[in-house]
């Protein structure tokens, strides 16, 4: 079952683009544009996570935060302010993370994933076509058969799956798979992608995006 995320953001455009980004990686989303609507909705429906803009009409983010604490739903604040004071305020109120606008979509996805994992809400099994990936065992099966992958190939596959339908640059892959302290060539990414395509028969699904990087497509 897909995770349900509530987007509380008063700017229609921003709300919509967040929704699109989340939908593409298989989160279900609901949008509301003010604090009171959010509160009302939360009384009726359960969500796995809330993305909450601080400056929203009727009931601002901090006030809403106070009211929804009993629901124990993880909250990530979205805001244009980036003063330390506001961060501390937000986190003290029980926010799980804090995103300062403008932000990159994959950064938001990564934060959402981290927060969900912290709450034990992360999906431990990832599926794609005939592939099944067990995150606990670090095991990949294709049509029931275990496929042997090197650790880096495995990590790369997980990043691709988690950012399904979103293109990532080679630098982003390096950052997420090899870590900040890797100073090798970006060609390493190409090599690993090549072997993933071969081992898992994903030639049609891992697309090379011109001038950018790679994207896993359904």
């Amino acid at each position: 079952m897909n995770k349900k995320i509530l987007i509380v953001e008063d700017d229609v455009h921003i709300s919509k683009i967040i929704k699109m980004n989340l939908n593409i990686v298989n989160y279900d989303t609901t949008e509301v544009y003010d604090g009171l609507a959010a509160l009302e909705l939360l009384q009726r429906e359960k969500f796995d996570l809330i993305l909450l803009d601080v400056m929203i009409p009727k009931l601002d983010g901090f006030a809403l935060m106070e009211r929804i604490r009993p629901y124990c739903i993880p909250v990530i604040f979205l805001t244009a302010k980036n003063s330390v004071y506001d961060k501390v305020d937000g986190l003290r109120l029980g926010a799980d993370d804090y995103m300062v606008k403008p932000f990159e979509a994959i950064e938001l996805l990564a934060r959402i994933e981290t927060v969900l994992r912290r709450y034990g809400k992360e999906e431990r099994m990832l599926g794609f076509q005939s592939l099944l990936i067990d995150l606990d065992k670090r095991e990949v099966t294709k049509q029931g058969e275990v496929v042997e992958l090197t650790p880096k190939e495995y990590d790369l596959l997980v990043v691709l799956l988690k950012n399904k339908n979103i293109a990532l640059s080679r630098e982003q892959f390096i950052d997420k798979v090899w870590g900040d302290d890797y100073y090798g060539e970006t060609r390493t990414v190409d090599m690993h992608i090549k072997s993933l395509r071969k081992k898992l028969d994903l030639q049609d699904h891992i697309k090379t995006i011109y001038k950018l990087g790679y994207r896993l497509e359904d």
């Binding site: 700017d11 455009h13 921003i14 683009i17 967040i18 699109m20 980004n21 593409i24 400056m55 244009a80 302010k81 980036n82 606008k101 403008p102 932000f103 990159e104 979509a105 994959i106 339908n165 979103i166 293109a167 990532l168 995006i209 950018l212 994207r215 497509e217």
Partner: peptide, 26 residues
């Protein structure tokens, strides 16, 4: 300054997010 940042960042967020989305998705 706060308001100015907000007024500046809201359109910027949209622009960057949409551009990024269009750039990275099918």
């Amino acid at each position: 300054i706060n308001n100015f940042t907000h007024e500046l960042k809201t359109p910027l967020t949209s622009i960057i997010a949409y551009a990024s989305f269009m750039r990275t998705t099918k």
